[in-house]
Amino acid sequence: MKILVPVKRVVDYNIKVRVKSDGTGVETAGLKMSMNPFDEIAVEEAVRLREKGAATEVVAVSIGVQQAQDTLRTALAMGADRAILVLTEESPEPLAVAKILKVLVEREKPELAFLGKQAIDDDMNATGQMLAGLLGWPQGTFASKVEIVDGRAEVTREIDGGSETVSLTLPAIVTADLRLNEPRYASLPNIMKAKKKPLETLQGADLGVDLTRRLTTVSVAEPPSRKAGVTVKSVAELVEKLRNEAKVI
């Protein structure tokens, strides 16, 4: 079984981004970039499935600018076997990404595409579901446990107030949630070895896919800042404020 793992290059989760003072977007120039944390979890799970013998090959894919190559090298250092870089503009929309991935799925013919549930930059939480829709494959989103049993994927999913298990025919799409696993480190020896693993580069424009953006960003603003706090005199006043002003109880 081959597993395709799309990974996205995003602003590192330790960095607090700031809105540009002209309100046109978020300042990303010169910030540390890393693999999207949910994608790391997906890579880890795919590599574990291969190590357990449930999968034979793990192919990492990234779609974006040339520097996304570094993200793919990280995936290779974590244990992916080879990588494909599709060059496009920075951070295409999930719809465009799903269309590109569909082309790659048709070419690579994996039985599982394992994605992170969302990217921590645009927080769309959409690409996995959209790829499943375009391919007509079943989807197991927000996975906290994945097992391959008798040619099906048993996926335990995080839902509101608990979890549920679904059984999917293969091929299928799975998206990783936080509790699925704790990804391994890309160790220094493995980073050195990853330099020798194959990495293929494709031009997004050559894939015959419409990449036109459907959303335009009108403006980006900082969230309203915290109001200054107040000191209340009594328990009754506190309860009243929580109920009627803050509306949290």
Partner: peptide, 23 residues
């Protein structure tokens, strides 16, 4: 934007060739 909504609506959008707008 519940677990169900987030699971199903992007799939709907893909089938309609639409970019969804979450949250």
């Amino acid at each position: 934007s519940s677990a169900i909504g987030k699971n199903v609506m992007p799939r709907v959008a893909a089938l309609l060739d639409v970019q969804p707008i979450p949250d």
